[in-house]
């Protein structure tokens, strides 16, 4: 039971980050390879605020998320004006820079050996509620004006611009929303693990999240959530295969990209109407088959 609680809590924390990545990658078509660095900012900042400055938990988390958003704005400012390739290159460099900074500022962050002594405050319930709220927020964002503008510019930036969409602002909004979500998941992570070190936040982690989004379906929030759930629970369940984890991941994703590029669920979303439609389709198929058999 303790193992299950542990796995679920970590899966929910990951889910929040993946919801952020979905906004960035799924909706807007931008890739951040330094997303994990924002998680690092969230966890280190909230940890330092609470442990070293003695702040209460909630303001510390709010401040940490704000700090990450400010940093995200500085990084995003030159980048959203450019071709979308730049955001992945720049964030990749950013991730490396943050890791170097965390390792270097030993007195504040504990350096390479990590920052310890954070109280454990995150419970399964908090993580679960946060994850549900995060996914709900993203679902709301997707159906809002901004979300549809994101999807429009993902398809064709020039056309979106011509339709009067402020491409730069929409890209920035999506980026900052994803940064905020990721930083928040970082806060929960710090107060769950009670310990953070700079190595856990490299580009591989960011790449993991992108892969999760693509695994489930890049156009579907339901799919991305499902992908995050499956892929983040998988290595926890198959502990013996720890070393092969990335190899298995990669092979799965290569298969999906080559043979089902839209991901597991494609565009399908979990809405009452879609469930009804799928259910009716299934039933029609079943009864159709049964009917044929009787006819023969």
């Amino acid at each position: 039971m303790a193992l299950l609680t542990n796995v679920l809590t970590q899966v929910f924390i990951t889910l929040i980050s993946v919801a952020g990545v979905y906004v960035l990658t799924g909706l807007t078509g931008m890739f951040s390879l330094g997303q994990a660095a924002f998680m690092a900012i969230g966890s280190y900042a909230s940890g330092i605020f609470v442990v070293k400055l003695g702040m209460p938990l909630v303001p510390a988390i709010i401040l940490a998320v704000l700090l990450a958003v400010v940093v995200g704005y500085l990084i995003g400012y030159p980048v959203v004006r450019l071709r979308r390739d730049y955001i992945s290159l720049v964030t990749l460099g950013f991730g490396e820079a943050i890791a170097a900074l965390l390792t270097r500022m030993t007195s504040l962050t504990g350096g390479a050996s990590g920052f310890t002594g954070i109280p454990r405050r995150t419970t399964l319930a908090i993580a679960a509620v946060s994850a549900i709220l995060a996914v709900a927020l993203v679902a709301f964002f997707k159906s809002s004006k901004y979300g549809r503008q994101c999807i429009a510019l993902r398809g064709d930036e020039l056309a979106a611009k011509a339709m009067g969409i402020n491409v730069i602002r929409v890209k920035m909004t999506a980026f900052l929303l994803s940064v905020a979500l990721t930083a928040y998941s970082g806060c929960l992570y710090a107060f769950y693990m009670t310990y953070v070190d700079p190595n856990g936040f490299d580009w591989k982690k960011s790449a993991d999240w992108v892969i999760m989004v693509f695994f489930g379906g890049v156009n579907s929030l339901t799919g991305s959530t499902l992908g995050a759930f499956i892929l983040s629970a998988l290595p926890q369940v198959l502990r013996g295969l720890q070393n092969y984890r990335y190899v298995i991941y990669a092979v799965l994703v290569l298969l999906i990209i080559n043979f089902k590029p839209s991901g597991l669920l494609g565009e399908w979303e979990l809405t009452p109407r879609n469930i009804k439609r799928t259910w009716n389709g299934l039933r029609a198929k079943l009864s159709g088959k049964a009917g044929k058999k009787e006819g023969h």
Partner: peptide, 28 residues
């Protein structure tokens, strides 16, 4: 994906996946 003229996002995901694959194999 080249032959299908897929959007550049697929190239991106494919390339990071390949990177993960190689690094994973080396680590193994």
């Amino acid at each position: 994906i080249t032959l299908n003229h897929s959007s550049s996002t697929y190239f991106f995901v494919s390339s990071i996946t390949l990177g993960t694959l190689y690094e994973g194999l080396v680590t193994v």
